[in-house]
Amino acid sequence: MLDLLKPSFLEFQEFFYLAGRALKNLFRKPHYWDDVLLQMDVIGVGSLPIVSLIGAFSGIVMALQMSRAVAQYGASSQTGTFVAIVLVRELGPVLTALLVAGRNASGIASEIGSMKVTEQIDAMRALGTDPTQKLVTPRMLALAVVLPLLTIIADFVGLCGGFLIGKFRLNISAAQYWNSAQQALVWNDVAQGLLKPFLFSFVISLVGCFYGMRTTGGTQGVGRSTTEAVVVSSVWVFILDVFITQIFVNM
């Protein structure tokens, strides 16, 4: 049993070692701001279409589902309330994080993984740069900025999607929909809706970098780490979500 757990513990330890180094690099020179901006563009701007699309659809589906459920209590006019709460607290952050995990944890892991198997990581060290500083920290920083922003956009587009259903299927007026949505949200919701993506961003970037950095065994190895990065980061997004939600529900 102990032998079974040992590799997982070692992996955990290595992961936190990498995370610690990446965080420490925030306060150490040199800073690669060009790389931070580049990653913001690749991850943030690049994910914008898919995040908006999925955000819109989740808003639409939520409104449709909710309208039927709340119609039983004669509260169809409150659709905006439900869409807003579910979207801002839960669906927006988690769906966005899952999409970005699928799109970018894999991208990060395969990019760094290919660099690892072609000795580019070693070359980087040989030529005077710390790969953690040059590759991991910029990605971590970029994602920490970009993921909350993407979540805000997904939330907003989702609310608009819900509005379309409210307006054209349920005959809720614009004022009623947006008022109920706005009133439903309190600071607590907004806080957890932004804290979640901020924390998820570290999971996604660091897990992607971690599996990229420990890639071995050629192209096959790159494929393996890419898959592992997506699976592990997605699972940890959910696990973390449970804990954060638990804390905020108790507040």
Binding site: T118, E119, D122, A126, L127
Partner: peptide
């Protein structure tokens, strides 16, 4: 390391 030049096996150029 800055006093050593190294050519890697497959060149390891940054692609």
């Amino acid at each position: 390391r800055s006093k050593i030049g190294m050519l890697f096996q497959e060149s390891a150029l940054f692609d």
